[in-house]
Amino acid sequence: MEVAVYNSKGEDTGKKVTLSDEIFGIEPNEHAIYLDVKQYLANQRQGTHKAKERAENAHSTRKIKKQKGTGGARAGSIKSPVFVGGGTIFGPRPRDYSFKLNKKVKQLARKSALAVKAKENNVAVLDNFTLDGPRTKSYLDFLNGFKAADTKTLLILPEVDKNVVLSSRNLKKAKVMTADLVSTYDLMNADRLLIAEGALSKLESLLQ
Rank of each mutant, 00 (worst) to 15 (best):
K103N: 12
L203P: 12
N57E: 04
L166H: 06
V17D: 07
L171I: 14
L181W: 05
D180W: 13
D96H: 02
P158L: 00
E22N: 13
H49I: 13
G10K: 01
A51M: 13
F129M: 04
L200S: 01
L181P: 09
L166F: 11
A73D: 11
E197Q: 12
A148F: 03
G91I: 06
L203V: 03
A149Q: 11
S8D: 06
S8N: 05
F24E: 07
K172W: 07
K38D: 04
A174Q: 06
R45Y: 10
N43Q: 14
L187A: 04
R169Q: 06
A55C: 05
A190H: 05
K103A: 10
K66T: 09
P28R: 05
F90G: 08
G85K: 11
A148G: 09
A113N: 06
D180V: 12
L131D: 02
G69D: 13
P81M: 13
G76V: 09
F142K: 00
V17P: 01
L114N: 01
T130G: 01
L101R: 06
L140V: 13
I33R: 04
S205Q: 14
D161C: 03
A199N: 01
E120S: 08
S80D: 02
S201L: 02
S183Y: 05
N7F: 06
A73G: 11
R169G: 01
R135C: 03
L108S: 02
K137T: 11
D186C: 04
T178C: 01
K52N: 05
V105A: 03
H59W: 14
R45H: 08
G86Y: 10
A75G: 08
Y185V: 07
K16R: 10
D191K: 05
K172E: 09
F90S: 12
V82R: 07
L131P: 00
A42E: 01
V37T: 01
A75E: 10
T184G: 08
V5D: 00
V105N: 01
G85W: 03
A118Y: 13
I156S: 00
A118W: 10
Q208E: 14
G47T: 11
S112G: 05
E197L: 12
K119P: 13
E53R: 08
K117V: 12
P134G: 15
L140A: 15
N121D: 08
V182Y: 05
E22A: 13
H49K: 09
V164N: 09
Q39M: 03
K147E: 07
F146G: 00
T136Y: 05
D161M: 03
T48D: 10
P158F: 00
E204Q: 15
L155Q: 01
R54V: 14
K100G: 03
T153Q: 08
S138C: 06
I78S: 11
A149W: 08
T48A: 02
F146Y: 02
G25A: 12
I78Y: 10
L200A: 04
L203K: 08
Y185K: 15
